[in-house]
Design a binder for these strands. Structure first.
Lengths: 175, 175
DNA sequence: TTCAATGTAAAACGATCATTTTACATTGTC
DNA sequence: GACAATGTAAAATGATCGTTTTACATTGAA
């Protein structure tokens, strides 16, 4: 595996498991199997590493959400949670830990949330024959965020519940 | 104001604004206006202080949720967000930052989530003539968590959207 | 074969971490 | 008027933080 990929994926699991601030560079170098000199050559700084981790996760996550129905959207989230577990939205956690005060991190978060929101709007447009129902899309977004948060302590079943609820909302929408 | 109250309320706002791990004891003593000796006399340790902050927040938050309808429940959350702002559920953030590895913190989180879940079940029972509709209650829980998470980046309007959605779900439920 | 790139290992950097300690001032109470 | 409690101010603790540096090994291309 490419050394940069190895670093970012090791960092992602440590950040997810223990939090961003609580994860020190020592533990990071050890998990990535490289010297701190090499780590800094590739990452630049811890803040920059966090931003890179978030950008990679954004890509990986949205690749999974490449679907065209609300049902499939929540099915994809359910799969993600069952495979990767769930400790909450890593982007919102990064926001909470940094207070939104680190520009490159705040930017990565904003990009991800905008892309997810666009994806949901796109799916809603497909399912309602092109009507741009903002209200419905926001309801689906809230269910999506809610499923992610609730899955932390109630497991993947919460995502299934959100899925049924979301599908019903879409069915009831005027098309 | 009582010195312990002052400490815990200063700690709550710093933790909420900057995160738990990123907030150092120096900043804490300064904000609370007391020496570190006094702080440790009352708090015991940082972990214990975090647990106390969470317990106090649990009390304060659930006092606001002392209502008997789903509509009032989300109205209360909306008020909370408009008054206090929203950086996400402080309990889930504490879970994310500690990885659930600190027993006294994990316990405070579990207590809060159990109490909120019970409150929602109680309201659903009231609104459906005593039928214990677990599925509906979980949907409301997910909307509640989702509103809290979404409000971080979309503001209090997201809570209003969740509110309308929740009310509709309850109306459609068989009673 | 020599140069530049890319890596490791390990020490050093000054800052900050959570926590304890030392020394002292102010209380209210018996 | 002595005592215990409760507070402050500030230094010291040893550990750990993110980051840089020093010294050296390996490699592939010119």
């Amino acid at each position: 595996m490419d050394i940069k990929t190895k670093l970012i994926s090791a960092a992602e699991s440590l950040f997810d498991r223990h939090g961003f601030t609580a994860t020190g560079m020592d533990r990071l170098t050890q998990a990535a199997g490289m010297s701190s000199r090499t780590l800094y050559k590739h990452a630049g700084s811890k803040h920059s590493l966090i931003a890179k981790v978030l950008s990679e996760r954004d890509k990986r996550f949205l690749r999974r959400l490449d679907v065209s129905s609300v049902d499939a959207l929540f099915k994809a989230l359910e799969d993600w949670v069952r495979v990767e577990g769930c400790r909450g939205c890593l982007f919102l956690r990064a926001y909470g830990e940094t207070g939104g005060d680190v520009p490159e991190i705040a930017e990565a978060i904003a990009v991800h949330k905008a892309r997810a929101w666009n994806k949901i709007q796109e799916i809603i447009a497909l399912e309602t024959n092109g009507r741009g129902d903002e209200q419905l899309a926001e309801q689906i977004l809230i269910l999506f965020e809610g499923a992610t948060a609730t899955a932390i302590y109630r497991g993947a079943d919460a995502v299934a519940t959100a899925r049924h609820c979301a599908v019903r909302l879409v069915k009831q929408a005027p098309s």
